[in-house]
């Protein structure tokens, strides 16, 4: 590694003055700096962890913000709730309204209900003493005319 003699010879040829100067450093260094110097490789891992943690927080914050934006957008795009008009239906005369409906319409409604439940299906009505079985098909067979 040392090429001291070669360098001295080289300097004598081109710049002899430099061979007269001491190479001992003249700048100040804190006391015991070299004795106490330790390469902080372990703290580097801590720094890396810290950076990863910071990144994780940033991603989490971004995810929360995006979630809020999506939720808010979804809420605003929902159809507005129309309040139920209780007053309008509270005073309805049910008997009168039923009289206005023709038997044909009622029959059609009952047929539709049957279709939805399935042909020949029965509905059980619970009462204190037991069950009444209502067979919608029975009506048509009991009163064929």
């Amino acid at each position: 590694m040392s090429n001291n003699k070669n360098i001295e010879q080289e300097l004598n040829e081109i710049a002899p003055l430099l061979n007269q100067i001491s190479k001992i450093p003249v700048q100040q260094v804190p006391a015991d700096y070299f004795k106490q110097f330790k390469a902080q490789v372990s703290t580097e891992q801590a720094v890396v962890k810290k950076i990863i943690w910071k990144k994780w927080v940033a991603y989490a914050a971004a995810a929360v913000f995006a979630g809020l934006m999506i939720h808010t957008g979804w809420r605003f795009n929902q159809p507005k709730n129309i309040p139920f008009d209780y007053d309008r239906y509270a005073n309805v005369d049910v008997a009168k309204e039923l009289n206005n409906i023709s038997d044909k319409e009622l029959q059609e409604y009952l047929n539709t209900s049957n279709t939805l439940l399935g042909a020949g299906s029965n509905i059980l009505i619970e009462e204190e003493t037991g069950y009444y079985e209502v067979d919608y098909n029975e009506k048509s067979t009991a009163n064929p005319k």
Binding site: M1, I7, I21, I24, Q27
Partner: peptide, 29 residues
């Protein structure tokens, strides 16, 4: 002279400063 040398080195372009240091102080081939 040692301090003059240090000031003189700072007058050199970057690359020459490195070359000078490696050869003169670190005595590299």
């Amino acid at each position: 002279l040692e301090w003059k040398l240090q000031i003189a080195i700072q007058q050199l372009p970057e690359k020459q400063r490195i070359v000078f240091g490696l050869r003169y102080f670190d005595e590299m081939s």
